[in-house]
Amino acid sequence: MSITREDVLHLAELSRLSISEEEIEPLMKDLDSIVSYISQLNELDTDGVEPTYQCFDMQNVWREDEIQEMEAKREDLLALATETEDNQVKVPKVL
């Protein structure tokens, strides 16, 4: 097992997921089999190979610095929120 119980809990924390006690074991198993599967990439020699982050070498795709009409206005956006006050999104006190 390369994925430990602590790993699962740490990844859940990073992912902002609350994992119940009984979920931990199966998750360990699943993540471990996936991680050992992707680890076969180590067989590949990639020395001196440039990574590909985007499929095509597009570059300098940008816009002029001009204000444009937006498809959704403040009212449309804030209407989606569970709680608002004074045109702002309301959340429990942030410590």
């Binding site: 990844l11 991680v35 590949l44 990574p51």
Partner: peptide, 22 residues
């Protein structure tokens, strides 16, 4: 989040993106 987390990025994410080039 595992493959991106510090310490694993190069071994998994970067490795995979290089393999992608191949």
């Amino acid at each position: 989040n595992f493959v991106l987390s510090s310490g694993f990025y190069d071994a998994y994410y970067l490795k995979a993106q290089k393999a992608r080039t191949l």
